[in-house]
């Protein structure tokens, strides 16, 4: 079978809002049932300057650990009201925020289980291709056995993927693009 080379990636540039903010979805939970959580974070560059012109996207499983997608064939319930996708442009202070339901654990490679996490995609001027990363939750014991977190050997770097508890139902997760405390980015 012919294998085609994927189309090359290009930056979203500084005018990304023109094409992308129509689908801004900060409330991922929508009308779905369940307890809301709020995830807030700041995006900064290699100088520590805030990034006010990025878009952060989230993909996640529902609280049962099932994705709203036909390739997830697990025998777990889906809520039609919960699609698990969000998009948020950063504001002038580099901040982004999502309201959602905490995902459940999902299967990993082999017999492993992945700790609850959000799959993150980041777009901005100055990025020729988007960045992939993940956000985990500090109050999840399963983090210790997560097959992706455990690929990051350096403890301090691993912790860049874990959001801190910031009050009841609130989590804080900052993204550092470069330098000291640089967030772990993933080659997916």
């Amino acid at each position: 079978m012919t294998k085609l080379v994927p189309t090359g990636s290009q930056t979203v540039g500084p005018y990304l809002h023109v094409g992308l903010t129509w689908l801004t979805t900060q409330d991922i939970a929508g009308t779905a049932g369940g307890r809301r959580i709020r995830v807030t974070g700041k995006l900064v560059d290699g100088d520590g300057a805030v990034v006010p012109d990025a878009i952060v996207e989230v993909w996640q499983a529902n609280p049962m650990g099932k994705y709203a997608h036909p390739e997830d064939k697990q025998d777990k319930p889906l809520d039609d009201a919960f699609k698990g996708w969000g998009r948020c442009p950063t504001d002038k202070d580099g901040m982004f925020e999502f309201t959602t339901l905490k995902p459940g654990p999902v299967p990993g490679p082999g017999n492993s289980l992945q700790a609850p996490h959000l799959a993150i995609t980041i777009f901005m001027r100055g990025q020729l291709k988007h960045l992939y990363t993940r956000m985990y939750f500090a109050d999840e014991a399963e983090n210790a056995n997560d097959p992706v977190l455990n690929l990051v050997e350096d403890r301090a770097r691993r912790d860049t993927l874990i959001a801190k508890k910031d009050g009841e139902g609130r989590y804080r997760w900052d993204i550092v693009l470069q330098g000291k405390n640089e967030t772990v980015f993933l080659d997916c």
Binding site: T11, D45, G46, D47, A49, V51, W59, A61, Y67, A68, H69, E71, D72, Q74, K83, G84, W85, V106, P107, G108, P109, Q114, H117, A119, M124, R125, G126, Q127, L128, L131, R134, P147, V148, L151, V152, R157, L177, Q178, G179, E182, V184, F185, L186, D187, C188
Partner: peptide, 24 residues
């Protein structure tokens, strides 16, 4: 603009799991 916005450290390669092969 890539100079201060590109990751400075190597990316960590991960296996493709149910998270990655699904999407909106």
């Amino acid at each position: 603009s890539t100079v201060k916005r590109a990751p400075g450290k190597p990316l960590i390669q991960i296996p493709h799991t149910l998270t990655e092969v699904t999407g909106p």
